[in-house]
Nucleic acid binder design. Structure first.
Lengths: 208, 208
DNA sequence: CACGATTTGTACCTCCAGTTACATCCTTGC
DNA sequence: GCAAGGATGTAACTGGAGGTACAAATCGTG
């Protein structure tokens, strides 16, 4: 495996995409090599040529997710620069879920849920993934504070975590109930809470 | 199977307890009949004598959870009659998680996350379970409103769902990070939000 | 105690997840 | 245009998940 070549990279990519979708749909445990092969139109040899094992594939899928978030090519936009962006970020999750007729949860949460005491490597991948997300959100809150648009009494990381865990809980409940209304309501409440920290910029006059 | 007898009931109970714990620990998919047999000190014949299939066992485990919640014998107390009870309810979840060294999530959420489009029966069980929980919480909020201790602008069911999804999200993130601090912070924020709806009872004077 | 029903033990079976081995076909850099 | 090694096809293997069959034991009730 010295120079990975075009065709190879394409195959590898197809496998990752297929696996990511299947993991999202039914979780890691419930997804067999067979299904991944069929969905990605590949054979067993490709699978094990490009990836050490199923666990290795999970790792690569998560790395791919992380990369997508970082470079802004993910299904959801994590570049938040305004409160309405934040709203959009929340609502995009509900939209994603609806796209799958409320039968799926969060792609990351679904995998995270399956982590056990023995999956230390996967757990760390997920930890990193959620840290990237948190940083995106916390970055926004920090900028808002800098501009005087954020009230006191909460730190940025905590607010970011609140966003993440709210959306995770909402999507889980939404999937169990197969009901978008549940998700929308939960999002409304989260936004409601966050709005409490919002400060309108004082008319430019007294500096302070 | 006309008259289930003492010994039989005990065995059945051991199996359900073992399965519930294993499902909580590692999820349904990752739990094999073998493991359930070992943990519950039973043989394969008992398993399939008392339960139709693995799916049937999952169903019975969930029914057992529902029953436990209803009759107040669950690991967590759902009888909420005061705001401090509500606080305790939240914190009990963090406590439960810590008991397992932050390696597990919520017993119900863990199963719920594994539900797919094809598990309609299990999904319904979980839907019911979460409705029972919601009713417990909503009941409290309703009583508070009746007594004039709840501000306007939110309905009881929505607040109850907010509690549930907050705790679900928090426990998932806590498990991924293996960090209780995350959970505690998330709970603080949820309580913070809820506190905004709390009204102190007006001095008993003007009726209305 | 006898009898039928319930409970348990033992053995077996099928299927497929997950993986490896190896041969063959392609790519591509020189 | 030809090696070197990357990409793919085919076959096979192991282990265990999930479940069935049936006989033996045990219970509990008249």
């Amino acid at each position: 495996m010295r120079t990975p070549s075009m065709k190879g990279k394409a195959t590898r990519r197809r496998i990752i995409d297929a696996a990511a979708d299947l993991f999202h749909k039914q979780g890691v445990q419930a997804t067999s090599p067979q299904q991944i092969m069929e969905t990605s139109q590949t054979g067993k040899s490709q699978l094990y040529h490009h990836f050490r094992s199923k666990g290795g594939l999970v790792h690569e899928v998560l790395q791919h997710h992380i990369q997508s978030i970082r470079e802004g090519s993910a299904a959801i936009d994590y570049e938040i620069t305004s409160w309405s962006d934040l709203q959009r970020w929340f609502r995009a999750h509900a939209g994603l879920q609806e796209k799958y007729r409320m039968t799926r949860g969060c792609p990351f949460g679904t995998i995270g849920n399956e982590v056990t005491e023995n999956d230390e490597l996967i757990r760390r991948d997920l930890e990193l993934l959620f840290e990237v997300v948190r940083n995106k959100l916390a970055g926004f809150f920090l900028r808002e504070r800098t501009r005087g648009r954020l009230g006191p009494g909460a730190n940025e990381a905590a607010l970011a975590d609140f966003c993440i865990s709210s959306i995770q809980g909402a999507m889980l409940l939404g999937k169990i109930r197969r009901d978008r209304g549940t998700v929308d309501l939960a999002i409304d409440q989260a936004l409601n809470y966050l709005a409490g920290f919002r400060r309108s910029v004082p008319r430019r006059r007294g500096s302070a």
